[in-house]
Design a protein around this nucleic acid. Sequence first.
DNA 1: AGCACGCCGACT
DNA 2: GTCGGCGTGCTC
Length: 743
Amino acid sequence: MIVGVQPLAGFDKLLHYKVPETLRASIRAGSLVRVPILNQHKVGLVMEVNGVVDVPLEKLKTVSGLLQDYPALTPDLLTLAKWMHGYYAARMESVLEAMIPGAVRDGTRLKQEKYLSAAHKPTTEELAALRKKAPQQSRLMEFLAHQFQPAKKSLLLSRLAVTAAVVNALVKRGWVREEVRHVERVAYADQWATGEVVATQPPKLNEEQATIVTSVGASLDKGKFAVHLLHGVTGSGKTEVYLHAVERVLAAGGSAIYLVPEVALTPQTVARLRGRFEAAGHRTVVWHSHLSEGERLDGWTALASGQARVVVGARSAVFAPVRDLRLIVVDEEHEPAYKQDETPRYHGRDVAVYRAKLANATCLLGSATPSLESFSNVRNGRYRLDVLTKRVDDKQLPDFQIVDMRIEVMRTRGLVTLSRLLVNHMQARFERKEQTILFINRRGYSSSMQCRKCGHVEECPHCSVAMTYHRADETLKCHLCGHERGAPAVCPSCAAPDIRWRGLGTQRVEEAVRRVLPRARLERVDTDTMAKRHRFREILSDFRTGKIDVLIGTQMIGKGLDFPNVTLVGLVDADLSMHVPDFRANERTFQLLVQVAGRAGRGDRAGEVVVQTFTPKADAVQFAKNADFNGFAEAELHVRHRFQYPPYRHLIHHLFRGPNPEKIKFFAEHWAKEVEKALGNTVELRGPTPSPIEKVKDEYRYQIWYFCASAAKVVPALVKLQATVKWPEDVFQVLDVDPMSLM
DNA sequence: AGCACGCCGACT
DNA sequence: GTCGGCGTGCTC
């Protein structure tokens, strides 16, 4: 018996070993083993049994031990690991480390980092001598001499482009000190373990909920892979649907994974879920990043052994070693928190979908504001859409009203910040002692150019993305393909003069509000305010308690905030956010607006949302036409479509070992071919366009960009191939890719 | 990640 | 000739 083992030893290569007689019965694919490598022993994972061996058989050594007598990875997880390795271009070793908790890997590789510092301050003569004899060492020495703190070895090596041999020589000489630091995760006290478990009585489902429970139940019973997207307005009782699905799976003897974004994993949520499952006699494992090693091991073994069949947890809970997986719930599926921002840079939601496919399970994605890629998959027929339109508390959805700002401009013959309608509404609220939120979108830095008379926006002829105005040299640039030209003096569409403006500051809005509501108490929430953290909290608390009448803010006022007395939400400048050449930014804007708007209104009366725009027919406000949240979905698809990121592989980031332009080129060419296949039409690869080296925190980065543009005008396709090279450290960026498109 | 190996320029 | 510096390639 011969096994292929992926050692957890710092390199990505499958090594083959013979298996001793004593271990033959218990070793399987997915088992953790101890293997000899050169003169040391390392832990490794058995990737295959009796596979093809490419070295002479007499070279094989023997497996020296087995860590557990059951495999650490179930077959579906093993396949998932291989998929992630290729899909996220992450090293196999790092994928395995993400999937198997350190405690299970026997604590062998307590994460350790090496640091270097100067142990000797060389004189100028010594340095000069060194520079002549050993230039590499002198560079390193000079760098270290200027550091106040020990520098991380791995980072230093690649930044200065020197090898470990250089360091060793200096250490031997006694000029450099090398120290090892163990990175220990802080184990928080588990506030959830002690928290009281409340057994909640399942509320009665309304008709909509019941229909969806049946629909999801049908998928579960079939035992085939299916994805349901549950699109439910705020407060429509999505959780109850999840709970029913999980309970059904548990009752049938299967296992379920319930994913929640880390921030949403509060003691209350956990207590509620636990209460429900444990009342029915099911042990529930809670999984999040603040668990101690011991707690992690306990939870993991409970799941692996089948003692527990439900896990509620954050992102990494997708890797729970459950047996007989039948359901994965992904709550708030649009949340960016599902992305892991260190290697392996995976997306929890996408991995959930793929794992469900491998396990022939049902995946239930839910959100009030689903992501574009999920909508797109509904449209493609790959996901099934279930909609909850009614709130369980019967609170009414807000009314949307669109204001055409071009008319406002003509009416007042001048600068307008707030429309008459919005002002009237605000004044009425003030008299009734109700509150208003004014939402300003300033996402991004870039300003597009828009005619305030006719609403015309200058777009890139290749990319149909608004061009960015650069004041310094009076030019318009496309941030996608780099197309550049002089900024026009008059509107190219209606010849109106002076179109060179865009963007509203919070201050200007504040002034405008003061003019129309001189006695109102107002506050601004923007990045300036955010700088002082307690100030931000203070403002929110004042707003909640009614000490503030009007809150003017940018992005951050949306999230999870509940203001019971807000009955009006104004989107001051709907256009701006729509012309930022990044669909992800547009998506966020919509989501924020819906979140804020969804909370507008009181029990007795629907709230109102006023959207001010210069382009009332634009996608930006399409959703409001239907005056409900279903229109929102349509609007999102419009945006998607408009930007034409073809197979939804909008950003392809890759990681390279060191700044290696050749490799980047190779990948760019590879992806260009993929895009060509997906589009069925010829694609031209342009580039490279290296960016200047920029300093980010204490690291230097540069990017090399390639663009694919389709030659045929029919599909104005454009894919941005961006290779981000955190120079010189290795970086793989998140692949913002839709997993379904690769199945 | 470590570690051996081998190439290359420098120098008693 | 030898020695140290430094990059490369291998680990079953």
